[in-house]
Nucleic acid binder design. Sequence first.
DNA 1: CTGTTGAGCTTGTTGGTACAAGCTCGATGA
DNA 2: TCATCGAGCTTGTACCAACAAGCTCAACAG
Lengths: 255, 255
Amino acid sequence: MSEQPKYRQLADALRREIVNGIYPPGARLPSESELSTRFDASRNTVRNGLKLLVSEGLVTSSQGLGYEVRSHEVFELNASRFENLTFQQNGDSYTTDVTNAGRRPHQTFRVEMKPAPEDIAERLRIEVGSTTVLRFCHRYVDDVPWSTQATYYPGWLTEQAPRLSEPGDIAEGTTRYLAGHDIEQVGYFDEIATRMPTPDEARLLEIGAGVPVLLWTRTGYSKDKRIRCTITTFRGDLNRMQYEIGDLSARNEVL
Amino acid sequence: MSEQPKYRQLADALRREIVNGIYPPGARLPSESELSTRFDASRNTVRNGLKLLVSEGLVTSSQGLGYEVRSHEVFELNASRFENLTFQQNGDSYTTDVTNAGRRPHQTFRVEMKPAPEDIAERLRIEVGSTTVLRFCHRYVDDVPWSTQATYYPGWLTEQAPRLSEPGDIAEGTTRYLAGHDIEQVGYFDEIATRMPTPDEARLLEIGAGVPVLLWTRTGYSKDKRIRCTITTFRGDLNRMQYEIGDLSARNEVL
DNA sequence: CTGTTGAGCTTGTTGGTACAAGCTCGATGA
DNA sequence: TCATCGAGCTTGTACCAACAAGCTCAACAG
């Protein structure tokens, strides 16, 4: 027996073949029993090796179907544009260029009133249990789940901005809509975390076990009040976030 | 048989007992054979359940010793404190933050010269393969691995700031040291990503294969040049990043 | 022609066994 | 006294077997 246990050798061999393109993204790996004969190992040992690759996010497994090599095309999200967010992939913005490039973004909304949970109440500086407007947003690109978003607005905002609590999209964007009703967001702070998805998130984002999610919590405030808190859940394997901070004018010179 | 498979029920039960403090951090779990009789399951099933907890980062296992409950205190990292750097008396923000949190920081350094790899060269706007100073830094909090960091500096910097390429800590912090040699960082942009750890990272950070890592790439620039690129790898389960953007003076009023 | 069923593939779960390898600690021997 | 060894615990690796559950697709019945 060589130094490395057999299941690791198996995983290393398969990993090599995957990164070398022998099994490209979307391809199916040989079945456990095939690998079992190829590597002269029991099915348990094969499963141990494959479990490594799944946990690395290289492949997914599904009952009845087999093991599939995951694609790893990365979208970049610039989070520090103060005015507006642009979702980008390879330089294409989500709202315009993606459409032009033949990609079809779409999003669905759901609105409800909900008593503020503890973490939200703390961020919005309101009482736990007080009324909030909760706007859900599910985003897709080419019908592939992209992100799920939950935005909480303190209830008092609806007096000035009633459309917040009405169902449906706000075409001009909520930031602009609020600004038009004398509620201007002058800053925000973000919290970013990562963890493995809950079963619900895995289902909504259609990701298998072994793929982390990126959690992005943005709390925005006006001159004198906190006006919203947005929690966005991304597929961690397909997203990067970017922040630009400091003297941005100088950055242009060093681009 | 109930809906959930037995190994998940087992993991759920143990997880509950861990978060409820029945098994506090540092405690040993019962051995596999004890759990086997307690849950009336085979050792394979027990191992499947424990593997879940290990991959969640809740416990570690070591051959001959058993399963130990890990500590799981979350650390918050403010990544946007650009102006505050000026007011720091000594040391870098890591040392300051950790000490302020009442915990014990500890870091080791390693310095080498290395030809610029492609991704670094692109970020530093230098030729691929040109000389860079690479400073590694492993950081611990209370002797628990916290992050590994690799900072690339373009080679020309050493003419103005020779201590960069010398081994050992730069006590006042590299940002301050560089500023003292007329190299002032006026801004930076960050990229944040998450993925599952490579085997090397899992070993260095002492995390299980199921704990995602948080990748933080910061590219800093002076008035006319890009001066460094830092890639930091964090344990994703114990870290959150925070950014504050916009009119920070207004934020003070709504704190 | 269409809808259903089931054979035959896949992975998922659970049980068992055996031995290797790492750690602790008491017994043993110099 | 002190170093060494080994019994006895722990987890790690590897094998086997059986059945459950999900998917595909061809054969079949209506």
